[in-house]
């Protein structure tokens, strides 16, 4: 699946670019999230009461942050997975298992992207409780995040090992 020709190099560069974008966008949302929660505390003790929308805005910022960061985590292989078994399987069996794994990832990401779009569109008429905006705005994070992961996944398939970051300390929780 991996090619080392021109397309592969381009794909690897795009994968890197997508990680940078996904990281910055997610980091920004995370900062908004923390900032809004801190503002809520300051408002409560500084002005006696905090506006009711802080809770909702903070939640939505975090939802966008974690979904946007998905593509970056995917490139770095930081999504929790267990690969001790696969790496030990011999030749043909190992490749069959690997193919099935890739197909499953592709299918699930595609499904969540398409269904997420359908869903986000469908609930345009429902509004959120505090901010009173269409529920589409927070829920669109799902198709966007899953879609970016799908693109990232395909870029990694095309780009091969070059699309992966160099092996380094992996962070887990």
């Amino acid at each position: 699946m991996a090619s080392d020709g021109g397309i592969g190099r381009h794909a690897a560069a795009w994968a890197r670019g997508l990680e940078v974008f996904s990281t910055w966008a997610a980091g920004l949302c995370l900062c908004v999230n923390i900032g809004v929660v801190l503002f809520g505390i300051v408002a409560r003790y500084g002005f006696g009461s905090s506006p009711i929308w802080t809770d909702e805005l903070a939640r939505y910022a975090l939802i966008w942050a974690v979904l946007l960061a998905g593509a970056a985590a995917l490139r770095r292989g930081e999504h929790m997975q267990i690969d001790i078994l696969v790496s030990r399987l011999p030749g043909l069996l190992g490749r069959a298992v690997d193919l099935l794994r890739r197909l499953a990832i592709f299918a699930v990401l595609l499904f969540m992207t398409v269904m997420g779009t359908v869903y986000a569109e469908k609930i345009w008429g429902m509004s959120t409780l505090a901010l009173n905006v269409p529920r589409t705005i927070p829920t669109a994070a799902i198709p966007v995040g899953m879609g970016l992961m799908l693109v990232q996944f395909l870029l990694i398939q095309i780009g091969g090992p070059a699309a992966r970051p160099p092996e380094r300390e992996r962070v887990t929780v």
């Binding site: 997610a26 949302c29 995370l30 939802i63 942050a65 985590a73």
Partner: peptide, 15 residues
Amino acid sequence: TIAETARLSSAIFLI
């Protein structure tokens, strides 16, 4: 660290 936190949180929240 913020970027790291975003990626780690992503891994947790997707689960």
